[in-house]
């Protein structure tokens, strides 16, 4: 059973720090007035998936030293590109080189998995703050732009990534 990845705990942006108290008040107001809409959003038939959505996973960053930054369908639908930024070059050195460190992408619509890489993950020496990529064959068009996918690596996963 894969771990569930918490996504709320990593919001450290300047906006979050500066606006906490104002946002608390404003947010409560918005929640009250928007409650009906929220109910529709959360329990309605289909969430609105926004292309380019990329949650973050502290667990993956802690274990593998990388942060996924980008998922897109490319090559006229024939390939999928996944990018990650190196947070900790020591932990990221073997990222992708063994089955237990290799990311794969799973369609949340039907569970189709893509894991056959076309390019990427060759370089053992990675540098911090640099972004690297992996290209996959988009087998049977499994990953679709604007649809949710899960990135799984080892026993961790990052859900609700929405591909460009």
């Amino acid at each position: 059973m894969e771990k569930t990845t918490a996504v709320v705990g990593t919001w450290h942006g300047p906006l979050g720090i500066a606006m906490n108290r104002l946002a608390l008040a404003l947010g409560l107001l918005v929640i009250l007035s928007g409650g009906l809409f929220a109910g529709w959003r959360l329990f309605g038939p289909q969430p609105k998936w926004v292309p380019g959505t990329m949650p973050v996973s502290p667990e993956i960053e802690e274990k593998f030293g990388v942060r996924f930054t980008f998922l897109a369908v490319t090559a006229d639908g024939g390939m999928v590109e996944l990018r990650y930024r190196v947070i900790d070059e020591g932990k990221a050195a073997n990222f992708g080189h063994y089955s237990e460190t290799a990311p794969l992408v799973i369609s949340e619509d039907d569970g189709k998995i893509i894991d056959v890489t076309i390019m990427g993950l060759h370089n053992h020496r990675v540098e911090p703050a640099r972004t690297y990529y992996v290209l996959y064959r988009n087998t049977e068009g499994a990953i679709k732009s604007g649809r949710p996918a899960t990135i799984a690596v080892g026993d961790l996963s990052l859900k609700h990534v929405v591909s460009w």
Partner: peptide
């Protein structure tokens, strides 16, 4: 947006 959707997911 990605924060928002991530929260919905959780």
């Amino acid at each position: 947006l990605k924060l928002g959707v991530g929260l919905v997911g959780v």
